[in-house]
C-alpha cells in the first residue's frame, strides 16, 4: 500500500505555483523525510496530503486509494502542523478529551501514560507549557489517535536539541511499536539523516529526488579525478553536480549500481545523504525520481587524451 500517491499534482496561489508536476508513490512503513529549502513547497505538499488544501492540478490519494481529506483519510492520518497549534487556554486533560471527542479512535491510556512519563501535568494549560512540552503534547494527541500515517510539518524547528531528541524518540517508538508510517518535513536534513529511510527532496515547487535512502546512496558516487578530464565525462556520465578545483574535480554522479565502471585514473567514493541532497539542491535541473534514470545506459567508452 502506498501511504501517499500523487500524479501530476500541482497547487497554485494566484499565478505562482507553490508545487507543480509532483508525481510520487511513497510506500508504507517508512520514515519519510521531506526536505527542501524554505518556500520550496514542503508545507503545500503536506497540506494537500492531509486535506487542508485542494489541488489545483493533478490528483493525490492517501492510505491506499482514499481521497485526501475524505473521512477515511482523516481517520487514518494524524497531522501536527507547523508551530504545534493547540488551544492555549485548554489544559492537557481538556486537549486529550477534545481530541478523543473529535475522533473515532483515541487511546486515552496511552496518552495519559505518555504525558505522565514526560512529566507534563494534566492540569497544565497548553499556553503555559514550554515549547518542548507543547510539541510533545501535540505529538501525543496525534499518536493516541492510532493513525496509520503520521504527518509532521517542521516539528523540530522551534525545539532545543534535547527536546528534538525526545521528540524523535517518541516518533521512532511509535514506528517500531505500532508500524506507523511517518512523513515529516524539515529544512535541516542533519536532524533526519540518522532516522529517515526515505527521502523526498523538493525545491522551487518541484520534486527533485524521491526514493529509499539506501537505494539513493547505492546509486550515487562521488568521482574524484583531474580537472582537465572532467569535461569529457560530464557528457558521458550522469553528473548531478560538478565541483572543479584547480587540479582536482569532484563529480557527483548517478549510477546504475556499484558495478558501474570508473574512468581510469579516477577514484569513486560512496556519498552521504547530506552531500547528495546538497548536490541536488545546487542543481535545480537535476532529478532522481523513480523510473528510468536519465541516460542510465551510458557506458564509459574510453578516455581520449
Amino acid at each position: 500500500m502506498n501511504v501517499i500517491e500523487t500524479s501530476g499534482l500541482g497547487k497554485s496561489y494566484g499565478s505562482t505555483w507553490a508545487l507543480r508536476d509532483c508525481t510520487l508513490a511513497i510506500p508504507e512503513g517508512h520514515m519519510v523525510a521531506l526536505v527542501g529549502p524554505n518556500g520550496a513547497g514542503k508545507t503545500t505538499l503536506l497540506n494537500l496530503a492531509v486535506g487542508l488544501n485542494a489541488p489545483t492540478a493533478g490528483s493525490i490519494t492517501v492510505l491506499g486509494k482514499c481521497a485526501a481529506g475524505s473521512p477515511a483519510a482523516l481517520d487514518g492520518i494524524a497531522f501536527v502542523a507547523q508551530d504545534m497549534p493547540l488551544y492555549k487556554t485548554l489544559s492537557a486533560a481538556d486537549m486529550l478529551h477534545l481530541t478523543r471527542n473529535l475522533n473515532r479512535r483515541f487511546d486515552r491510556g496511552y496518552a495519559e501514560a505518555r504525558l505522565g512519563e514526560l512529566g507534563i501535568p494534566l492540569k497544565r494549560k497548553a499556553g503555559t507549557m514550554s515549547g518542548g512540552q507543547q510539541a510533545q503534547l501535540a505529538l501525543t494527541l496525534a499518536l493516541a489517535r492510532r493513525p496509520r500515517l503520521l504527518v509532521l510539518d517542521e516539528p523540530m524547528a522551534t525545539l532545543d536539541p534535547l527536546a528534538r531528541h525526545d521528540f524523535m524518540a517518541t516518533v521512532m517508538a511509535a514506528m517500531v511499536d505500532d508500524g506507523v508510517s511517518v512523513l515529516l518535513s524539515s529544512h535541516v536534513l542533519t536532524e533526519l539523516e540518522r532516522v529517515a529511510d526515505y527521502l523526498v527532496l523538493v525545491s522551487r515547487g518541484r520534486v527533485q529526488v524521491a526514493g529509499e535512502v539506501d537505494d539513493l546512496l547505492a546509486h550515487h558516487r562521488m568521482l574524484t579525478g583531474p580537472t582537465a578530464e572532467a569535461n569529457l565525462y560530464t557528457e558521458q556520465l550522469n553528473v548531478v553536480h560538478a565541483r572543479q578545483g584547480e587540479a582536482q574535480a569532484h563529480l557527483l554522479i548517478r549510477t546504475n549500481g556499484a558495478a558501474d565502471p570508473v574512468p581510469p585514473g579516477w577514484e569513486a567514493q560512496p556519498v552521504g545523504l547530506e552531500e547528495l541532497t546538497l548536490a541536488y539542491l545546487r542543481e535545480p535541473g537535476a532529478a532522481a525520481l523513480p523510473g528510468p534514470a536519465r541516460r542510465a545506459d551510458t557506458k564509459i567508452v574510453g578516455v581520449a587524451k
Binding site: V50, G51, L52, P71, L74, D75, I77, A78, F79, A81, Q82, D83, P85, L86, Y87, K88, T99, N101, L102, N103, R104, R105, A138, R145
Partner: peptide, 12 residues
C-alpha cells in the same frame, strides 16, 4: 491562532 489546522484534520 492556526488551530483550524488542528481541528480540520481530526476525524470529525
Amino acid at each position: 491562532s492556526g488551530t483550524f489546522r488542528f481541528a480540520w484534520t481530526q476525524g470529525f
